[in-house]
């Protein structure tokens, strides 16, 4: 009985300190140090509407935009998930075939793998620079922009996520699409 009572006292103590106290402190730190990312890295348009999170991929289907990696959950930011398919699964082959057709990839111009492979959460905001360049021709054509201009935008936004600990450079799809839109608006 004593032990039960003590257990309850500990529940209260740990709840107060580790839940209420800890969460509040961390919330406070976030609020002060990193208010923008603490709210989810939301990007606001000039008119004040929220147009997305820098960290969360959104669906792009129009030719004038760079397309992100496929999503097993249709870019559902409220119910993320992966395909959970075996890498040998026939379902994946079917999906990959559709994507290959969508991009019009051929043996001479093969598709970078990540554009065919769904990410873990279905919300991966990045693609590799190679995958961006792969789409640059299409985007440039759709926007009637010179290809080098599109490629400059890609290069400007490219970064290496982990320095010498990772291979290759990535671009954030939402960022380069925004940059494209702005580039169009600018003149």
């Amino acid at each position: 009985m004593n032990a039960l009572l003590t257990s309850c006292r500990l529940v209260i103590a740990t709840m107060l300190i580790c839940v209420a106290g800890y969460a509040t402190v961390i919330w406070g730190v976030g609020h002060i140090l990193t208010p923008w990312t603490a709210q989810g890295s939301l990007i606001t348009a000039s008119d004040g509407t929220v147009i997305g999170s820098r960290l969360v991929a959104q669906d792009f289907t129009e030719a004038k935009y760079f397309w992100p990696r496929p999503s097993a959950v249709d870019y559902d930011g409220a119910g993320a998930g992966g395909s959970n398919k075996s890498p040998a699964s026939a379902d994946l082959t079917v999906r990959a075939k559709e994507i290959v057709t969508k991009y019009g990839a051929t043996a001479d111009n093969p598709l970078p793998a990540e554009l065919a492979a769904a990410s873990g959460a279905g919300l991966d905001p990045h693609i590799s620079v190679d995958a961006a360049r792969y789409q640059a021709v299409r985007v440039a054509k759709a926007r009637q922009l010179p290809l080098p201009e599109v490629q400059t935008i890609i290069d400007m936004h490219a970064s290496s996520p982990g320095g010498f600990l990772t291979l290759g450079r990535l671009v954030n799809v939402l960022e380069i699409n925004l940059a494209l839109d702005r580039a169009k608006e600018a003149p």
Binding site: W27, G30, A38, S41, L42, T49, I51, S53, Q58, F60
Partner: peptide, 14 residues
């Protein structure tokens, strides 16, 4: 992120 606000509703570029 560390927020007590609910889900964000956004309008995508498309």
């Amino acid at each position: 992120p560390m927020t007590f606000q609910g889900a964000a509703h956004v309008m995508t570029l498309e």
